[in-house]
Write a protein that binds this DNA or RNA. Sequence first.
DNA 1: ATAGTCACCTGAGCGC
DNA 2: TGCGCTCAGGTGACTA
Length: 278
Amino acid sequence: MPELPEVETTRRGLSPLIEGVRLERIVVRDPRLRWPVQLPASLRDVELRSLGRRAKYLLFNMDHGALIVHLGMSGSLRIVNQHTPLKTHDHVDLVFAGDRVVRYHDPRRFGSIHWQANPVDQHWLLQKLGPEPLGDEFDGAYLKRLARGRRVAVKNFIMDAHVVVGVGNIYAAESLFRAGIRPTVAAHRVTLTAYESLARAIRFVLQRSIHVGGTTLRDFVDHDGNPGYFKQLLNVYGRDGQPCRVCGTTLRLTRLGQRSTVFCPKCQRFQGFREVNC
DNA sequence: ATAGTCACCTGAGCGC
DNA sequence: TGCGCTCAGGTGACTA
């Protein structure tokens, strides 16, 4: 569930409910996430200053540091109260004043929760991350520069968090389709023009998805961010064997870095002859 | 440094 | 109904 738009949607839904509110305590029911959850005992009765995001990490910013929360493959957060019955895999509660509980739910337990004292960006998980795709330093020229000498497939290249953060399997496929680029092309062979198109596509696809997710989860209190709306917008992901929405050609499935990858063999010919309009 | 593979874990869906 | 297999939105740690 959680790619960057879902994380951002979660952030936007949660922040008005808990910013400026005192975090009273944290209940760890099951510490066995990707890394064992180990939080300082002193982390109680502190005010949440802001809820931020870096890549797919949510940052619960306090005066002296931050909780760094990652949702992994199957994690979600929702607002409940202390009497809300527990479901299986509800591993952690952040108990705020006013009976507001942010409940962490993660069946596969690939997510993580860390505490990092200021400065928060010194945390090892955040140290080597590339730029935000929606930020200023991310553009076609940046991608072209980093792609020098890189022989990995361009899809793997843009999914590499050292290159740019927040582009997961769904959005990598969708962005490459929109830019008309074949996912398997070696990163160094993609032209500057095509990278400019790709950078635009990444921003567009992420922003549109955040917008739609925001609509779907306007009353965010529930998790479940698997919006029907969003699914309607998918052009290639999960559509192998079906006709391309643009040209009708049967979409093809391949595997890249152990991840399934769907593309249109006609619209995505090589390094992007044209941007696909949808 | 780079590219490729493994691993972590649970649940859903499918064929038999 | 049950069993075994494959796959799933992420990403750090290994290996050559």
